[in-house]
Structures are given as C-alpha cells and as structure tokens.
Design a protein around this nucleic acid. Structure first.
Lengths: 166, 166
DNA sequence: ATGGAGTGTCAACAAGGCTGACGTAGTTGG
DNA sequence: CCAACTACGTCAGCCTTGTTGACACTCCAT
C-alpha cells in the first residue's frame, strides 16, 4: 500500500486522516465481528447479551454473578433477565458457593456448552480468516493496538480472567 | 512479549487460545473505543445512533438519506427518529437535491460540526494514544486485520466514501 | 447481633432496533 | 402524458437491552 505508507521514523503517521480511518475501521470491523454469532442467536431467539454471558461463563466456569456483572459492565437487573432465560432454557446452571453460600457459581450445561461452541466457532472462523489474510506480524500489531485502546480497568479484566474453584 | 511469541513462519499462531484472545480484545477494546464519545453524548441527551449519523454526514457532506441508510445498516424508521432530533436541534440540515428533488442532501450546521469535532476529538485522542503506545508497524497490522474482518460489502463502504456534489 | 455483601425481584422507563402499511412528491419509461 | 417506480416521511406497534429505585432474603464478619 504505497498511498498508505507509514513513515519509517513513526512520527508523521498520526494525521487526522489516519486516525479517522482507524475509527471507521473499528466501526465496520465490529459489525462484521458480531454478524455471524448474531445470525445464530437470532435464529434461537437470543441476543448479544446472551452471547456475552455464555462466553464469559465458559471462559471462567464457577464465576459468581457479581464477577460477571463487573466484566460485562451492566446492572444486575439487566444481567438477571438474561441469566433467567438461560437457566430456564437449561443452558446455564448455578451452584451455591461452597465457602460462601450466598454466592451462585455459574456453569454451562452440556447444552449451553454446545451453544457456546457454535457461537465461538463462527466467530473464530472469521477471526482466523482475518488473521490468515493479514499475516502474523499484523496480528501482533492488531492485538497491541486493541490492548492500548482499552480502559485500564477493562484491560485488567481482559488479562486477568482465570478459572475459579467452587 | 516473549510468552506471546508468534512463530516466525506464521503457521502455528492460530491456536484457539490466540483466537479467543483476539475475540475478547475486540470486545473490550470496542468498549473503550466508544466510552469517551458516549460520555459526551450522554450529557447532551444523545446516543450512539446520533454519533454515527453525525460522523458520516461530516464524512461525506451532501449524502442522501438512502446512502446514509445503507452505510449505517438500519431501517429508515430508525434513522428518521434520530435525524428528526438532529434537525430539530439544528445540528443537521437537509437541502433538496438539485437534479433529483426527491432527494434530501444532508449537511452539518455549524453547531453540528462543533459536536462532531468534540466527539471525534475525544475518539481520536484515544486512538492516537493507542497508536503511539503500539508503534507504527502495529498500526499497519491493526488496520489490516480489521479490514480483513469486515464483510465485503461493508469493506466497500469503508473504502469508497467520498464527498458528493449536491 | 448487627451491618454490610451477594443475590433475586418487582415496577417503570428509555433508547434504539425491527416490521408493516400508507401517503406524498417527484422521476422516468413507454 | 400517464403509469409505475423511487425517495422519503410517518404512524402504530413490537422487541431487546439498557437504566433507576425499592425491597427482601441469606449469610458472612466483626
């Protein structure tokens, strides 16, 4: 891309035009990013909120409700509406905390894990294709810019997720 | 980042773990990406939908309603609700098309341009900081991956915006 | 045993998507 | 010149997902 050339000393490349391109790239790419899971979710009567919940419960099984709340950054009323449908449909189950019995530890059921897999397969396929098309160094850069763009608190959530014992 | 090392031949890096990291990076980064404009919009009683409209009208002044519809990917009823408030508040004005009088060409007013500037300044500041932190090659990679992640039709929208004559 | 934390729930509301249907002005093709 | 189509607006109604405020319950910790 000669017209898009980046100065080798890395000072002149921060024009408003470059920044605007980056902003629009985020906008359009995010649309693509969510479109495949959205189709699956739609066909099942779910929305993105369900996807997010299922994703992070799969990511860190045994998570409590308030941990999930803080990751998702929504109110508990909002999350609860979603969690309830997931319970009712048998995708997620809650087990009472062992040491603290007020807590409800969240787990995917077999059925929930199947949905999670379907959703993430779709999303990974797109991500894989994009990674392949762009190449390894591009992927490195992609991740670096995204991490730098997060709020510090969110960056901690991003880096600090681990499995929790019930 | 040694623990994150990418194989120099670029074949082994597409593990599920790498892909999952990329997916979550998109999720958290997008939250950061929208947070600064969101604060400004909130204080004025607007939402993201207003931001998107104002952004693209600024981007390609003289755009018709249906062009904007196709870029935003929403229904006209939805867009109209937003446009009406922008007209009423004097941020956007519509001029009847010169050759085709059915068309309404959209322009920002001085006031609208001021809001657009405030919003994009905030967003650019974050983007600039992320770019600086990540470095020029990272920016290149960032853009490449994002472009590869877009739907082909959206990619055309992304690349093909230009100013339109009324 | 009392305060506070973790959770559920009810009610009410708003933004911003959607569909379907209809109207009006203006353009275009036969 | 008229019929058909296009661009746009609008009304009505629905859904998801977010919000606030209030209240109740269980349980942990001091």
């Amino acid at each position: 891309m000669p017209e898009n050339a980046v100065g080798s000393e890395g000072l002149l490349f921060l024009t408003d035009e470059q920044l605007r391109k980056g902003i629009e790239a985020m906008f359009f790419a995010y649309r693509g990013f969510t479109s495949d899971p959205d189709r699956i979710l739609d066909s099942l009567g779910y929305g993105r909120a369900h996807h997010r919940a299922v994703h992070f419960i799969n990511r860190a099984p045994g998570m409590t409700v308030s941990q999930l709340l803080s990751i998702l950054g929504v109110t508990k009323q909002s999350l609860n509406r979603v969690l309830r449908t997931l319970f009712d449909d048998g995708l997620v189950e809650a087990r009472v905390g062992r040491t603290d019995k007020r807590e409800r530890r969240l787990y995917l059921t077999t059925k929930g894990a199947a949905l999670e897999r379907a959703l993430s397969d779709a999303q990974r396929a797109r991500m894989r294709a994009a990674y392949r098309a762009a190449g390894p160094e591009a992927v490195q850069g992609f991740r670096m810019v995204l991490e730098a763009m997060m709020d510090p608190e969110l960056r901690r959530q991003y880096q600090g997720l681990r499995e929790v014992e019930p």
